[in-house]
Amino acid sequence: MAAGVLFDSPGPATRARHRTYGIVTVVALVVLVGWVLWRLNETGQFEYDKWEPFLTPAYIRAILVDGLVVTLQMAFSAIIGAVVFGLVFGIGKLSDHGILRWPCWLVVEFFRAVPVILLIVFCFYAVFGGMNPLSSRTYWAVVLALTLYNGAVLAEVFRAGINAVPKGQAEAAYAIGMRKYQVMTLILLPQAVKIMIPAIISQMIVALKDTSLGYVVAGLGLTRVAKSIYPQFQNHVPTIIVIAAIYIAVNLLLTWLATWVQKRFVGEKDVLQVSMVGEQTAEAAPIPGAARTD
């Protein structure tokens, strides 16, 4: 429903009233922002000393190379792993054989329900317990944990994507005598991939944000760099602002990419999504009418 249908097109009196609301909002926002800025200034958050590391080439390099690049590497490795995991278990869940379908269902449901932090702690201490050095131990713990979690989510996405291919396609393929694996690899998957790619990019945003959960063990990437900057300069507020801004910028870039791919290659407006609840779980159509979003 476009927001426009929720209210009548305003007449002169309403427009005046809305203008008043608008002005009040602007004033309130200006006061709020001004007050925050004043407090920041008052507590010395704008002092040059606190921002100095973000203007020093060595630190910028550390933030970008040890921070951003490592974070992106972790997210990317995790997504690659998750796509493989998701394909195996997503197709497994569609199997005609109960003996294959039920274990896949169990694994997917389990990893979808367990918090990533638990997985990271487990991977860090139990799976990669003996690994050295610490940084690669953290790296692989985070990557494995994110692979399992995002893989489970992607398994549902893949299943929904394959189910979204019109039934006639598979029927026609069987009719001309194709075998089951041919139908899957030649007919269903190639068509489903198109729908899945934006969903995979969206999942990459989730993975990228979740790499910060490595903080629970030793921490790696952007959060690790932040952790080593602020004890030195006592500049917690500026550091958090800068690190958050980097995350936001990268995520917006990925969001834009997902939307672009969606428009360019899929055509439908909404990225394929799967719900955690309800019987319609993982049916392709998310919410009736959702396609009409403003």
């Binding site: 507590t43 932040a226 995350y247």
Partner: peptide, 18 residues
């Protein structure tokens, strides 16, 4: 678009200073 950890960090270390 901000990771939850960063928001927690903000309310743990940043906001109390201001």
């Amino acid at each position: 678009n901000t990771p939850l950890v960063i928001i927690f960090l903000f309310f743990q270390l940043g906001a109390p200073k201001v």
